[in-house]
Each structure stands twice: as structure tokens, then as C-alpha cells.
Amino acid sequence: MEATVVTANAKPLVKVAALCGSVRRGSYNRGLIRSAIEMSKGPINGLEIEDVDITGLPMLNTDMEGEGSFPPVVEAFRHKIREADSVLFASPEYNYSVSAPLKNAIDWASRPPNVWADKAAAIVSASGGSGGARSQYHLRQIGVFLDLHFINKPELFINSHHPPGKFDKNGDLIDAQTRENLKKVLLSLQTFTLRLQGR
């Protein structure tokens, strides 16, 4: 039997479910998730980030629930959240709040048993005006009921309109300072998750 070699710098694996609140193909928030996944495969050790698609979820309707069961697409989504150690939300701001697709996903996963409970979480956002600050604070309020534990610092609000040049035409994050700020959010989420789990 071969011995498993663990390097001195290795960290326990933290599995992160990443949710984008925008279903638009060129969404800057989806670009943030792509950058986060890229960082998890390179400069950040011990972080595994999966982009969890919410576009196929039906609108919440409890008539669709069976006896302890949900539609298959909802069951699959809930399983992804349940198996994750923590959650990364990329939340645009729609009308001073979170987007309808994101709130719908949150509500489905909160149906008993609530699969969000006792997980660490972080939020990043790219939007006009305040950069999504109001959506982040609304999401934190929702998280109180869900029993989600958000990191407090650092915060990342990206005004996606001014100054220009932070994202390319495909919605990919190209600004070096913003990428560094995103990395700091991910490292904070990783550290907080391990602390919350006592690892």
C-alpha cells in the first residue's frame, strides 16, 4: 500500500458551491465565479469551487413537493448545496435587492430540511451604482433566517460601469486589483469555513 504524502503547506479541502444571481450569458457576476474557480485551481490551495447552475429551477411552488421529495432538478440542486462546506454568492442588484432567480434558488433550498443551515458564506457583486451593496445587505438579512454565517470582511462591491475596463467583452474579470480583492474574499471564506467546522 502506498503512503499518502501530505505537504506541510497543504490545507484541508473546502468545497464551495458558487451561485450566480444573473442568468445572462455575459454576466459580470458569472465572470467573478469563473475567476474564483480559476484561482482555486492555482494560487489558492485547498479550495474547490463548483459553479452551481440555477437557471433550470422552476419557480417555487410547494404543490410540486411530494412526501419528503422535490422535482428532480430541485433535488439535484439541493444535493449540491447540502454537500458543500460553504457558499459563494455572486449577486447583482435588481431594484435595490437580490435578483428573482437567486431568491428562487434560495427559497427552494430552504424548504425543510433547510440545506443552507450552518454553512459559511461570502458575497461578491458587480452592478451599476453602488456595485451591488444593497443586494448584499438584503442577502445577509435573508441569511439570518437560513442560518448562514457570512464573512464580514473583506467586502467586494464592483461598479461594473465606472471606471470601464474591469471586465472584457466576454464578461471575464481582467482588472488586476479587483482580482486580488476577489482572492482575499476567497481566502477569508476558506479560513472562516475551517474555523466554523473546527478543522
Score class of each variant (00 low, 15 high):
I49R: 04
V115Q: 07
L13R: 11
H162G: 00
L186G: 02
A90S: 14
A76H: 07
L57Q: 06
I142W: 01
F70T: 09
F70Y: 15
S130K: 02
W116L: 06
E93W: 05
G198R: 12
L182P: 11
V87I: 15
N9E: 15
E38K: 14
L57M: 07
N29H: 07
P58E: 11
G21P: 10
F192W: 14
L156R: 08
Q190H: 14
A120D: 00
P92S: 03
K41H: 15
R140I: 11
T7P: 00
M1A: 14
G129L: 12
T55F: 08
G46Y: 08
I49Y: 02
F167L: 10
E155M: 05
G131F: 03
L156G: 04
L156S: 07
N104S: 07
T4N: 11
G21M: 08
R34V: 00
K11Y: 06
D85E: 03
M1I: 06
P92K: 02
P58Q: 12
A109V: 03
N114R: 05
E50T: 15
I151Y: 02
L13V: 14
Q190R: 15
A10N: 14
E67Q: 15
N114T: 04
T4H: 10
G198H: 12
F150R: 09
D107Y: 02
K80I: 03
A90F: 04
N95F: 05
I174V: 15
S97P: 01
Q141N: 13
